[in-house]
Design a protein around this nucleic acid. Structure first.
Lengths: 207, 207
DNA sequence: GTCTATACTGAGATAGAC
DNA sequence: GTCTATCTCAGTATAGAC
C-alpha cells in the first residue's frame, strides 16, 4: 500500500511533534513508529522542515478559511457600526478551538510552533494573510486605538493564545482542565478582549 | 587563563542562544566563537542542557529577588486593603524589563525558553517559587476571582510576556519599537491588568 | 513513480593522555 | 584542567531495486 505511506508519515509526525516537540523528534523515530523507510520521508517531503510545513498546511487551511468567513460575516453584519471586540476575537480564536477538539495533538504542535522562535517561514506562509485580514476588522472595532498600540496588543494576544494552546502544566489546576477547549476559549476571549479595551497609557509617562 | 574559560563559554553561549535559539546553536559553534576546546564545555558544565541551566541561573537570580522584594513591599503597603492589579503586574514584569536593558540578548533567550515547550526542568527550578509568591499577592488583589480563572489568566499573562520579550517581528511596526523595553512593559502591564479585571464568563454558558 | 539500502557530514557525549 | 580521539545518533544525499 504505497498510497498510505505519505499519510502514515504525516499522521505519525503530527503526533510525535505534538508530544515531544519538533527538534526533539527525530526522523528515525517517526519512520520506526510509522513502519516506513527513512528515505521515503525525503522522497515525499524533501526535508524534515518541509514535512512540518505540509503537516501544518493540512490542518491550518480549514482554520484560516473559517477565520476569514467569520470575519466577513462580522463585517457584513456591522456596516456603519462598530463590531464587538469579543466577536472579532472569537472569529480569530474559535476556529483554533474547533480543530483542537478534532485534533488536539495538532493544536499542541501549533501552540509550540507559534511560540518557539521557530520556523520563521511557517508563520509567514500560513498566517500572514489572515492576520492582515483580522487586523482590518479589529481596527473597525477599535478605531480610537493608535496603530502601534493595536499591533502590540495583537502581539500579546497571540502570545497568550499560543501559550494557552500548548496546554503546558504550569500549575496543577490549569493542566487538569486542559481537555476542555471551549471553556479555555471563553476564558481567553474574555481576557484578551478586556486587554484590547484597556485605556492607552501614554508611552512617555512614568508609572 | 583557565579561570576565564567558564565565563567565556557562558557569555558566548548566552549571546548565540539568544540570537539563534538553543537547539539551533551547536556547542562547536560556541567553542569556536569563544576560542576554547569542545571538551572544556563538558568539563565545566557536564552537558549542553546544564550549560543552559547555569546560564539562566546567573541572570534569573537577581530578577527573582527583585520580584520578591517588590511583592513584599506591596504587601507591606496594603495591609487591610487590596493591592492594585497594575502594581502586582509591575512587581512581576518590571524586573524582567530591568535586565532587558542591561542584557537584551539574555531576555531574548528567556523569552524563547519561556515559550518553547522548553526545558521542562528550567521553569520548575527557577520560576516555580516566585510564581507561588506572586499568586499569593495576586489573590489579595483579586479576591473575588475564582481560583481556576485566576490560574488561567496567569497562564495567559505569561504567554503574552514571553511572546513580547522575544521581540519577534510579526508586524513591521512592532519590531521597530523593539528596543524600548520600558514602553513595552507599560503596554504589557496595561493589557494584562485589564485582562485580569475582566468579568468572569460562566464556563457553562454559550456565548 | 515508489521505495530500500547504504553512505556522508555534523551533532552531543565520553575516555584517557598530558 | 585541558585537549585529542572516538563513539553514537542526528539529518541528508544518492544509487538502484521493484
Amino acid at each position: 500500500m504505497h498510497v498510505d505511506t505519505k499519510q502514515k508519515i504525516l499522521d505519525t509526525a503530527e503526533r510525535l511533534f505534538g508530544e515531544q516537540g519538533y527538534d526533539a523528534t527525530s526522523l528515525r523515530q517517526i519512520i520506526a513508529a510509522a513502519n516506513v523507510n527513512l528515505a521515503a520521508v525525503h522522497y515525499h517531503f524533501g526535508s524534515k522542515e518541509e514535512l512540518l510545513d505540509q503537516l501544518v498546511m493540512r490542518r491550518v487551511g480549514p482554520v484560516n478559511e473559517a477565520r476569514l468567513a467569520a470575519l466577513d460575516r462580522i463585517d457584513a453584519d456591522t456596516v456603519g457600526k462598530r463590531p464587538g471586540v469579543e466577536k472579532v476575537m472569537e472569529a480569530f480564536l474559535s476556529p483554533v478551538s474547533q480543530i483542537a477538539i478534532a485534533h488536539p495533538t495538532f493544536v499542541r504542535l501549533m501552540g509550540r510552533l507559534h511560540a518557539e522562535g521557530l520556523m520563521p517561514g511557517i508563520r509567514e506562509r500560513h498566517f500572514q494573510g489572515v492576520a492582515e485580514r483580522f487586523l482590518a476588522t479589529l481596527r473597525r472595532a477599535l478605531p480610537e486605538l493608535p496603530e502601534d498600540e493595536l499591533l502590540w496588543r495583537v502581539h500579546f494576544m497571540i502570545g497568550a493564545m499560543a501559550h494557552a494552546l500548548c496546554g503546558m502544566p504550569i500549575f496543577p489546576g490549569v493542566s487538569a482542565a486542559s481537555a476542555d477547549f471551549p471553556a479555555r476559549l471563553r476564558r481567553l476571549v474574555a481576557f484578551v478582549s478586556a486587554g484590547f479595551r484597556a485605556p492607552v497609557v501614554p508611552i512617555g509617562d512614568k508609572s
